[in-house]
Structures are given as C-alpha cells and as structure tokens.
C-alpha cells in the first residue's frame, strides 16, 4: 500500500504561478493608465469630463492630506462593516434554523423567493421617509441586500450534509449540539464563506449607493459633492479609492476562504 500524503503547502510553486499571472495583469493595468493619461491630454476626450491620470493622482494626494477624506473613509467602512456583520449573523442564524427543519424550509421557501429578488435600491424611498440621510438609511439597504446572499448560501450548505456522514454521527450517538458543531457547521462553512464574499461586495455597493443617492455621510457623498462642485479630478480620485476598497475587500475574503477551508476540495486542488 502506498502512502499518498501530499505536502500541505507548495508555497514555492504557487508563488511562481502567481508571479507569472502578475506580469500580464500589471501590463494591462499600465496600458489603461497610459490611455487614461494620453486620451485627455491629446484632446481625444474632453479633459473636463475625464482629467488625465496625473491630475487625478495629484487630487488623490491632496485628498489624503485632508481630514474630511479620512472621516468619510471611516464612515463608509464603518457602515459597510456593521451592515455586513449584522447580515452575516442574521443570515447564519436564520439559515441554520430554517435549514434544520423541513417544515420551516417549506414554509419559508416561497416568501424567500419573493423577497430576495427585490433590489435593495427599490427601498430607497422607504428608508428616506424613515431615516432621511442618517447612516441608518444606508444600514437598512446594506443589510437587506447582504442578508439574502448569506441566507441562501447557508440554506444550500445545511442541505449539503452527506447522508453517510449523518448516519455516522447518529450511529456514534452524537448529541444534537455535536451534530451541529461537528457535522452541519463544517459542511456549511464553505457556503458561509462564499456568502461572506458575495455579501461583502454587495454591502459595499449598497453603502456607496446610499451615500451617493441619499446623502448618507461617507465617500459616496463626497463623490456627489465633488461632482456638483465641478471638481472632476477629486471625484475620480474618490472613485479610485472606492474601487481599491472593493479590491481589498475581495482579496481579504479570499484569504479568509483559504485559511478556513484548507481541507476543502476547492482549496486542496490549488495546493496539490
């Protein structure tokens, strides 16, 4: 019998793989930046609407020196994080409760299918009536959008428990709590992590939308102010910041995924 133990990590090989991918990626990004610089400078596009990259970069540098920028960044991140946390906890708890009972699943299925597709932005008039431009408005929109992402994933996850593993846990007389802790939770975890990644992205979109449209304090609101005062370069600078936040959110969600799911086939394959 052969022992087929793979090394748990092949960091070196993965590192070179990532390095190879990084070269064309960086080239592509450089091309975009170059075009962004050349097109407005050459007059192909109106610099009023699209200032050259260097101007936007210097506007960004100016922004980094102001306290309003950092306050707005903090407000956006706080709103996003609180909304995401509430959605995660609510989605996991509700999903586990519904998922563990067939009756609950059947009772709620049609309601979930009806409520889930409602775009969160359709609730803007409602939250404006309720809270005006307070952070609560953004919170409601963020939670509404992100909650469904988590809930649906958790429901799939709970349904994914293998019957053989369930029998195994039963035959070894696991308690109810142990069956949840040792069987249902680890099985659902990959789905929870996927839900987290999707919810994190959606939450950021809704946070910025609420700030931009309703005027909830944050980066989105600063974008709106920059636009209406004709500071196009500042507006683009802020948009770039929002984009970078998005990239950071996605990257950190992927890191969490790899850490938590070392044993899972999707992660295993990467390291095999």
């Amino acid at each position: 019998m052969t022992v087929a133990v793979h090394p748990t990590s092949t960091g070196a090989r993965r590192g070179t793989g990532r390095g190879r991918d990084a070269v064309p990626g960086a080239l592509g990004l450089l091309t975009v930046v170059a075009l962004w610089e050349i097109l407005p400078t050459a007059g192909v596009v109106n610099p009023e609407y699209l200032p050259p990259f260097t101007e936007v970069a210097s506007a960004l540098a100016d922004q980094l020196g102001t306290s309003t920028f950092w306050t707005a960044l903090g407000q956006t991140l706080r709103g996003w994080a609180i909304g995401l946390a509430i959605s995660m906890v609510a989605g996991i708890v509700v999903g586990m409760l519904i998922g563990s009972s067939r009756l609950a699943r059947e009772l709620t299925a049609s309601t979930i299918e009806f409520l889930r597709p409602i775009p969160s932005v359709a609730l803007i008039p409602l939250v404006v009536l309720l809270y005006g431009s307070q952070p609560k408005s953004a919170l409601v929109l963020v939670v509404y959008a992100a909650f469904w992402q988590v809930l649906v994933q958790v429901l799939y996850g709970v349904a994914d428990v293998d019957p053989v593993i369930r029998d195994t846990a039963r035959s070894y007389r696991f308690s109810r709590w142990a069956r949840f802790r040792q069987v249902v939770w680890p099985t659902a975890l990959p789905y929870v992590v996927t839900g987290f990644r999707l919810a994190a992205a959606v939450a950021l979109i809704l946070e910025i939308t609420a700030e931009l449209v309703i005027g909830v304090p944050g980066l989105g609101q600063r974008v709106g102010v920059a636009r209406s005062s004709g500071a196009t370069d500042t507006m683009y600078a802020l948009v770039v910041v929002v984009g970078l936040i998005g990239v950071a959110v996605n990257a950190s969600a992927r890191t969490v995924e790899r850490r938590v799911l070392r044993w899972h086939p999707s992660v295993r394959r990467e390291s095999a």
């Binding site: 293998d162 593993i165 040792q182 680890p186 975890l189 044993w263 899972h264």
Partner: peptide, 8 residues
C-alpha cells in the same frame, strides 16, 4: 470517503 470527516 463519505463517512470520515474531511475537515479533521
């Protein structure tokens, strides 16, 4: 393969 806990 399905009776063992893959996360352990």
């Amino acid at each position: 393969g399905r009776s063992l806990f893959p996360w352990m």
